[in-house]
Design a protein around this nucleic acid. Structure first.
Lengths: 131, 131, 131, 131
DNA sequence: GTGGTCTAGACCACA
DNA sequence: GTGGTCTAGACCACA
């Protein structure tokens, strides 16, 4: 379920946290599902338990999981959090796309990307899609 | 021309290099323009010359500048590099946008971003977008 | 394993990097083998850790090693790199040999060099050359 | 006649000296031909005269040219020198080819290079060429 | 312990 | 003056 890329420049604990974030956001790990214990995951990944602990603290701090003393860590209900995440992505996208525009990327090049993602049916005017 | 953010978690040398990348990619610093000397920039920014040197080495390694011993550092001709960079941005955009789609971002939300960047009048042809 | 030539005009960090390149390309240091730590090697060679760090950064930039923060530096899988290196050598050889031809070096003089390297018995097929 | 590559990592004076070496070794500049004056060449290349002077001293030290006080610099008779250069190239070739062998370059790959340089008529046995 | 960054300061080759 | 290398020494994040 969790894979580590030792060549990545991201610290291990962030990689682990990020992976869990995705799993939680996608609903693979539903609310109140128990997280694997720090120790078992440490053994499974052959990683120092401190690192797992750090990843879990990180996730808890961000609201993805909550910890119950003596029992373990559990997945939070993240409906609100997901909305937040969506906004972050839109903001990040704006920054990236703007950066590309500066480099000479045309609107149609971006539209082509959207076409690939969402299908092509309605690409000449998408204003009718807006609520 | 160069500003330092001491709050940023990015190392100084990367901040400096990144800033110059932008200036070079935007054409503010044209090919063969001499870069500020290591020492003068170090004084101007109140930063150790070694750190500037590191930033310049970094830029050289990436092909943004070239160095002539005893003379100084000069901006490279980065037309090929810029093309490459554009492709990278498109690829990165695809990844990010796809990630957003997974989170429930609709095409129209992305289109709204594009509208904001390129103007709204005409989204099938982008040559007339700039006011 | 690593020797320094203080007479050489090559910078220390390049000497060190080059030495490791050879060891890695020859397979003496196999993929994922941990490199000596920056500090331990610095002590062993009586060289400043910064210089070792620079050598390692150099190797990383060239793809010979990868670094895991807090853990150490490790040898990369360089099969692709080795192929590339082989091509570079052939290209360089062509340039050098051509330069020699211009100076009057005959084909037989070059063949003699090859004979010395690969053995003399059979120069149309080299699969049986090694004793 | 002389071209400068400011992107090269070789110092200017070496680039200039090397270029003259080639011209002299190839006989383009025959023995006793007068070299361009330091000043005129400096102007022509838009380079500091000191640098030209350094290149000429370098050439003189290696025996490629000789200087006559108050008159200028002249090309030496370099027949002996050419022989020396040839030997150097053969030695360098041996080192490079050996390095390639270590990387897995086969004799036939090298033979192919020789074929390209000298033509293919006699590549199965070149021992009859030897004096 | 491990790598990464940064400063202060020195020395060198080159132009 | 210009870049490049190196040492000594400090501090930080990460494992």
């Amino acid at each position: 379920m969790i894979t580590i890329d030792y060549q990545s420049k991201l610290p291990l604990y962030e990689q682990i946290a990020e992976r869990f974030q995705t799993l939680i956001l996608r609903g693979v790990l539903p609310p109140d599902r128990q997280m694997p214990s720090v120790r078992s995951l440490a053994v499974e990944l052959s990683i120092n338990p401190n690192t797992i602990q750090k990843a879990y603290s990180f996730l808890e701090q961000q609201g993805y999981i909550y910890s119950v003393k003596g029992r373990g860590n559990y997945v939070s209900d993240i409906t609100a959090l997901a909305e937040q995440k969506k906004k972050n992505i839109l903001k990040e996208a704006e920054r990236l796309l703007s950066c590309g525009k500066e480099m000479g990327v045309s609107r149609s090049e971006y539209s082509a990307v959207l076409d690939r993602l969402y299908g092509k049916e309605d690409n000449s005017d998408d204003r009718t899609e807006k609520p």
